[in-house]
């Protein structure tokens, strides 16, 4: 109950924050602007709509996850609000998980709104909508959950600015991990071990990207989908447990 209470409080706080609306408006504008781009393109405008739409949802969701996520803990420490919470009968991990869930709910609502915007555009342009689109949106949301957990983990041990940089780096590298492996194969043994290590430790975010499947009407098997979702959730759990361990030992100076 305490976790839920913290989560709902975080959600409410997020809802009333202007940053969120700014990002959301930009996301919807981006999705809408694909209609303009469409006029500049010859043929294949269905692909373009889906590509720009899903891409915008992904980018803006990640921006929200990072910029709200890094503030979740840091802001509480800077403003000393955390002092009043940790001095109450609330375990530190409950605080972290509550904050995480709160932002996850926020991101879920945002994803719904952005997806709604995309669907409107698609329907208006009579683009055929198939189930794969919803699977892709679901996995984009799982990716947000991973990014939020990375941001939360970073913010338990470093400043807001560094957390933002680390999380952004994790997002970019997370989409390039396959290249890490390929690159590693061309290096010496030491380099290969290092890059392979990174490949396994960093989140493989490309796994959550079904944009190609949606555009080219490719299928993903149910078991594959389940595996990807499980991978995301296990990764999130791993990050939250690490964050809790660091947070438990921290002195709030």
């Amino acid at each position: 109950m305490k976790v839920l209470s913290i989560a709902l409080n975080t959600f409410r706080e997020n809802l009333r924050d202007k940053l969120l609306y700014n990002l959301l408006v930009f996301a919807l504008l981006m999705i809408g602007s694909s209609l303009l781009l469409m006029r500049l393109t010859l043929g294949e405008f269905h692909r373009l709509l889906l590509d720009v739409g899903l891409g915008s949802i992904n980018i803006f969701g990640v921006l929200i996850a990072i910029f709200v996520g890094i503030g979740l803990v840091n802001k509480e420490i800077e403003k000393k609000t955390i002092y009043t919470i940790v001095s109450k009968p609330v375990a530190r991990y409950q605080f972290l998980v509550g904050k995480y869930l709160g932002l996850t709910i926020t991101l879920f609502v945002n994803t719904l709104i952005m997806a709604g915007g995309l669907l409107l555009v698609l329907v208006a342009q009579e683009v055929p909508i198939d189930g794969m689109l919803f699977k892709a949106l679901g996995l984009i949301f799982i990716e947000f959950m991973v990014i939020t957990a990375v941001a939360l983990l970073c913010s338990t041990f470093t400043s807001a600015t560094l957390s933002a940089i680390f999380t952004l780096a994790a997002y970019v590298i997370g989409h390039l991990t396959a290249d890490l492996k390929t690159f590693g194969a061309k290096m010496g043994e030491g380099g290969q071990m290092l890059l392979n290590g990174l490949y396994y430790v960093l989140p493989n975010l490309e796994r959550f990207n079904l944009k190609g499947h949606v555009i080219h009407h490719l299928e993903v098997s149910g078991s594959d989908l389940l595996l990807i979702v499980a991978y995301g959730l296990i990764y999130v759990t791993f990050l939250l447990v690490s964050a809790s361990i660091i947070f438990q030992r921290r002195d709030f100076r």
């Binding site: 305490k2 209470s5 706080e13 924050d17 403003k79 000393k80 609000t81 009043t84 109450k88 009968p89």
Partner: peptide, 26 residues
């Protein structure tokens, strides 16, 4: 406990704010 010059959740009303702290005590 009241910490030194705290800044609480800006966007909550005082009623919501106190309710939230009540929930933390069940």
């Amino acid at each position: 406990f009241l910490p030194e010059s705290p800044y609480f959740y800006d966007y909550l009303t005082s009623h919501e704010f106190l309710n939230f702290y009540g929930h933390l005590f069940g």
